[in-house]
Simulated scan of single mutants.
Amino acid sequence: MRRAAFGRWRRAVLAARCRLVAGDRERGANPVELAVVMPLILVLLFASLQVSAVFLARSTALNAAQSGVNAQRLYNARGGAGKASATRFLSATGGWLLGWDRTGPTCVTTAVEVTCTVTGRSLSVVPGVDFAVEQTAHGTVERVTPP
């Protein structure tokens, strides 16, 4: 008796298993979906890396320009102190800003104000895509005022 019940149970399980496997019409759909979605995922990944590289290049250029302004605006600062300070900063920060050494930081000093501009290019994650970066900082020249 037990053997007959086991045989019926086994046949029912096998029949259900065959129906499930035979009715599975979406077999192999996951690799196709992945092949369709993967280029979009890669484009978003590289775009986010490129945006990060541009942001870091802009931050580096702005900090170098501010460093130049802070050095040049001091009371009785020698000529070229701002450019030297910005160049030291850019040399120490690594390669986030490219091409700055060709033009170099420019610092213009008037009687009242100092303006430093740093130009260059950001790193390119995508070949052939080039982003120009230019940041300017301003500051007032320190001077002695009569009491």
Rank of each mutant, 00 (worst) to 15 (best):
K83F: 10
K83R: 15
K83G: 15
K83N: 14
K83A: 14
K83P: 07
A84H: 05
A84T: 08
A84I: 01
A84C: 13
A84N: 07
S85H: 09
S85N: 09
S85D: 09
S85P: 04
A86W: 01
A86K: 00
A86M: 00
T87A: 09
T87E: 05
T87F: 03
R88T: 06
R88Y: 02
R88K: 11
F89N: 06
F89P: 03
F89L: 03
F89E: 06
F89M: 04
L90D: 00
L90S: 02
L90V: 04
L90W: 00
S91Q: 13
A92H: 03
A92M: 05
A92Y: 00
A92K: 02
A92Q: 03
A92C: 07
T93V: 11
T93A: 10
T93Q: 08
T93N: 10
G94Q: 01
G94L: 02
G94Y: 01
G94I: 00
G94A: 04
G94H: 02
G95I: 00
G95D: 09
G95R: 11
W96P: 07
L97C: 06
L97M: 07
L97N: 07
L97I: 05
L97Y: 10
L98P: 09
L98G: 07
L98D: 12
L98A: 15
G99V: 10
W100A: 00
D101C: 02
D101Y: 01
R102H: 14
R102N: 15
R102L: 15
T103K: 10
T103R: 08
T103Q: 13
T103P: 09
T103F: 06
T103N: 05
G104K: 13
G104R: 02
G104P: 07
P105S: 00
P105K: 05
P105Q: 08
P105Y: 02
T106H: 09
T106K: 11
C107E: 06
C107F: 06
C107D: 05
C107H: 00
V108I: 14
V108L: 14
V108E: 13
V108R: 12
V108P: 07
V108S: 15
T110A: 08
T110G: 09
T110E: 06
T110V: 08
A111H: 08
A111V: 07
V112E: 15
E113C: 04
E113F: 13
E113Y: 12
E113D: 12
E113H: 09
V114C: 13
V114L: 08
V114E: 06
T115P: 11
T115N: 14
T115F: 08
C116K: 04
C116E: 09
T117A: 03
V118C: 07
V118G: 03
V118Y: 07
V118A: 06
V118H: 06
T119P: 04
T119F: 03
T119G: 05
G120Q: 01
G120D: 01
G120R: 04
G120A: 04
R121N: 13
R121G: 14
R121M: 15
R121A: 14
R121I: 14
R121C: 10
R121K: 13
S122Y: 03
S122T: 12
